[in-house]
Amino acid sequence: MNSIQIQIPSLSENIRIVESFIDNAKEKFSLNDDIYGNIMIAVTESVNNAIVHGNRKDSRKNVTLQLKVDDNILNFTITDEGEGFNFNQLPDPTSPENLDKPGGRGIFLMKHLCDEVSFQDEGRAVILTFYLN
């Protein structure tokens, strides 16, 4: 199993570092463009959620991004140092009463782009899983 990890302070501009991390993973693991696009959107969205919602943009708190590759399965784990949240009570952004609300789209998007999305540690960690074939 291969594993790489970075840790960034909770500043929105650090999304650039996450993009570089994903670019490096694309090269290292020869990811095709289709899955690369899905990974880029889902992982940057998740890290942004961790920065904004999890750590409340507190630059003293970090977001950790870890990639584990095992038997054609990519697992990205994004962890924040926030209070967590109830991931079982997320509003559906596609229901009519929520269409105009800005929140709730990120996780909805992740679930469409990833093969699996799971939460751990009371919502402080999200695992985005992609199958390579």
Rank of each mutant, 00 (worst) to 15 (best):
residue 91 P to W: 10
residue 15 I to M: 06
residue 94 T to W: 09
residue 72 N to E: 13
residue 32 N to A: 07
residue 56 R to V: 01
residue 90 L to F: 10
residue 12 S to H: 06
residue 35 I to E: 02
residue 53 H to M: 01
residue 85 F to G: 05
residue 61 K to C: 00
residue 93 P to Q: 09
residue 59 S to N: 15
residue 62 N to R: 06
residue 31 L to R: 03
residue 36 Y to W: 08
residue 25 A to R: 00
residue 97 E to S: 11
residue 40 M to V: 08
residue 50 A to G: 06
residue 73 I to H: 05
residue 77 T to C: 09
residue 82 G to P: 04
residue 23 D to W: 07
residue 85 F to H: 07
residue 52 V to W: 15
residue 14 N to I: 02
residue 36 Y to T: 03
residue 42 A to Y: 02
residue 75 N to C: 07
residue 49 N to W: 07
residue 29 F to N: 00
residue 63 V to E: 03
residue 20 S to G: 10
residue 94 T to I: 09
residue 40 M to Q: 01
residue 57 K to D: 05
residue 11 L to W: 14
residue 51 I to T: 04
residue 64 T to Y: 03
residue 86 N to E: 13
residue 88 N to S: 11
residue 64 T to E: 03
residue 83 E to A: 15
residue 71 D to C: 09
residue 72 N to D: 11
residue 18 V to C: 12
residue 54 G to C: 01
residue 96 P to C: 09
residue 62 N to M: 08
residue 81 E to M: 03
residue 26 K to N: 10
residue 20 S to V: 14
residue 43 V to K: 01
residue 25 A to E: 02
residue 16 R to N: 10
residue 94 T to H: 11
residue 24 N to A: 13
residue 32 N to M: 11
residue 28 K to W: 07
residue 82 G to E: 01
residue 36 Y to N: 02
residue 92 D to V: 08
residue 63 V to Y: 02
residue 62 N to Q: 07
residue 39 I to W: 02
residue 15 I to C: 05
residue 36 Y to R: 04
residue 75 N to E: 14
residue 65 L to C: 13
residue 71 D to W: 01
residue 96 P to N: 08
residue 46 S to Q: 07
residue 27 E to F: 09
residue 89 Q to T: 11
residue 81 E to F: 06
residue 55 N to D: 04
residue 65 L to H: 06
residue 94 T to V: 13
residue 18 V to N: 03
